[in-house]
């Protein structure tokens, strides 16, 4: 499945739902989606990864750089929800699990802000 990104602005938080496959060919598309949020001053973000089938190191780099952007000046955070077990294993292998606040579901992640 190709990459499918959906952005929903709630009152205080934006939810970005990422489905399908993120590799080096479409990672710039994911970067632009995050940037479209931070450019609008939306720094409290939840990434719902429930439909994410694959993410390469190129995609992981974007999650980390967006996390840095959001947390700068204490203005927000990028929180992850609904992570499929296979993706969780890769985040863990990359030593990224301790960097993120991770939630079982998106409602919980949104409510945590």
């Amino acid at each position: 499945m190709a990459l499918d990104i959906d952005i929903r602005d709630l009152k205080r938080v934006s939810v970005i739902t990422i489905k399908g496959r993120v590799d080096s060919s479409n990672a710039p598309e994911l970067a632009s989606a995050f940037q479209s949020l931070t450019d609008r001053g939306r720094y409290r973000l939840v990434a719902d990864l429930g439909g994410l089938e694959y993410i390469s190191s190129a995609g992981l780099r974007i999650l980390v750089s967006t996390l840095k952007t959001c947390r700068r000046y204490n203005r927000g955070d990028l929180r992850l929800s609904n992570i499929p077990p296979r993706i969780a294993e890769i985040l863990d292998l990359a030593g990224m699990t301790p960097l993120f606040k991770i939630f079982d579901d998106t409602v919980g992640a949104v409510g945590s802000f």
Partner: peptide
């Protein structure tokens, strides 16, 4: 090799591809 132990601000965003190949 990527330095996976450093904190967020210190972390270099690279070297992960080769690391994954070797780990997987």
């Amino acid at each position: 090799p990527p330095d996976l132990s450093t904190d967020l601000e210190q972390r270099r965003e690279g070297g992960l591809g080769l690391y994954f190949m070797r780990r997987l």
